[in-house]
């Protein structure tokens, strides 16, 4: 039987294979930040409430403070560092959808997944997805505007 020790994990992150030695009990958030230097996902509440640590696992938003890194072996992880000029990033800048910026990576990852999965999202779906993230600066109105703009752009792109 295996002993409780550190283990080398090979993770697929932002299209690259990355090897990291981590405790089996370590969360994905901690391994991303302290093991791999990917500090875009932010530690907020560490309790699954605030959404600042949101990353995508196989395209699904996940709060990385509540998932073990070892669970993600064999899956595709996308962090904010892996988004390259995604429309939602530009929409956030255009609408100044942040103040301090701490919650922004989490909001963007969640919104990006929403746009990819549900380009036809209605008000209810947008609210249901985005209420998983908290912005202490209360930039909600600007965030909503940015998400709706990116959704509209995606809809046009999907139609053609």
């Amino acid at each position: 039987m295996e002993e409780t020790t550190k283990r080398e994990l090979v993770l697929s992150i932002n299209g690259e294979r990355r090897a990291v030695v981590a405790r089996q009990a370590e969360t994905l958030l901690f391994v991303l930040r302290d093991g791999l230097g990917l500090t875009g996902a932010k530690p907020g509440c560490l309790n699954g409430d605030c959404g600042a640590c949101t990353v995508l696992v196989n395209g699904t938003p996940i709060k990385s403070c509540m998932m073990l890194a070892i669970e993600t072996v064999g899956k595709e992880i996308t962090t904010i560092e892996g988004l390259d000029d995604a429309p939602i990033q530009h929409a956030f800048v255009r609408h100044f959808a942040f103040q301090c910026g701490y919650c922004t990576p989490g909001f963007i990852m969640n919104a990006h997944a929403l746009i990819e999965r549900h380009p036809d999202a209605d008000e209810t779906t947008i609210q249901e997805w985005l209420e998983a993230n908290i912005c202490r600066c209360t930039s909600y109105q600007e965030i909503e505007t940015a998400v709706k703009e990116a959704l509209a752009a995606k809809k046009v792109e999907t139609k053609f």
Binding site: G51, P61, M67, W129, E131, A132
Partner: peptide, 8 residues
């Protein structure tokens, strides 16, 4: 909980 948490 919330939708992201319910993914887990």
């Amino acid at each position: 909980a919330d939708r992201t948490a319910r993914n887990q």
